[in-house]
Amino acid sequence: MATIRTARTAWEGNLLDGKGLVTLASSGIGEYPVSWASRAEQANGKTSPEELIAAAHSSCFSMALSHGLTGAGTPPVKLDTQADVTFQPGTGITGIHLTVTGRVPGLDEADFVKAAEDAKANCPVSKALAGTTITLTAKLAG
C-alpha cells in the first residue's frame, strides 16, 4: 500500500529578498522558515531544500543499511549517518556525501563497507536522487 507524505511551503516576495515557511504537514511536527540567504549563504536559524534533502537521505540510508545488516544476520547496535548536500548557486545540487559509522557486532570493516554501498545504491531516496553524484565513507566504530 502506497503512503503519501506532504509538506507545504508558503512563499512571500521575490527570490533574493523573499521568505517562506515550510510546513511538515503529514507529521505535524513543525513549520520551518526558509529563504534564499539560508540556502546560498548562512543558515541563520532557517532551513533550506538541501538541508531537508540531507535529512531525508540520512534517515532513509540508515533504515536501508539497518535492514540489510539485519537480513544478513548482523543487526546493528547503532548507526550514525550524516548527509552533506552541496549546493552551488547557479548550478544546483552538485553532490551528496554520506558518512556512516556503525557498531555492528560480528561484522568486519570490509563487509560493513559493502553493506553500506548496497544501502547507498538501493535506498529509495538515493534512487530518487540518481541524477546527483552520491559518495560514501563508511567505517565501524571503535
Rank of each mutant, 00 (worst) to 15 (best):
M1K: 11
T3D: 06
T6F: 03
T9C: 14
T9V: 14
T9P: 00
T9D: 03
T9I: 13
G13N: 01
G13V: 07
N14M: 02
L15I: 13
L16W: 00
L16D: 13
D17Q: 10
D17A: 09
G18I: 04
L21M: 15
T23Y: 00
T23H: 10
A25D: 15
G30K: 13
E31A: 14
Y32M: 14
P33C: 09
S35G: 05
S35E: 04
A37W: 00
R39I: 05
E41F: 04
P49D: 07
A56W: 00
H57D: 02
S58C: 13
S59V: 06
S59W: 03
F61W: 10
S62R: 01
S62L: 02
L65Q: 02
G68R: 12
G71W: 08
G71Q: 14
G71L: 04
A72H: 05
G73N: 11
T74L: 03
P76D: 05
D80L: 08
Q82Y: 01
D84G: 03
V85Q: 04
Q88R: 13
P89N: 06
G90Y: 04
T91N: 04
G95M: 10
G95H: 04
I96A: 03
H97C: 09
L98E: 05
L98F: 08
L98S: 06
T99Q: 12
R103T: 13
V104D: 08
V104Q: 10
V104S: 12
P105V: 08
G106R: 05
D108R: 10
E109T: 02
A110G: 02
F112D: 08
V113G: 01
A115V: 09
A115K: 09
D118A: 11
K120T: 11
A121C: 03
P124R: 03
V125I: 14
V125A: 07
S126R: 02
K127N: 11
A128I: 04
A128K: 07
A128P: 05
L129Q: 02
L129T: 09
L129Y: 08
A130C: 06
G131R: 06
T137F: 04
K139H: 11
G142K: 08
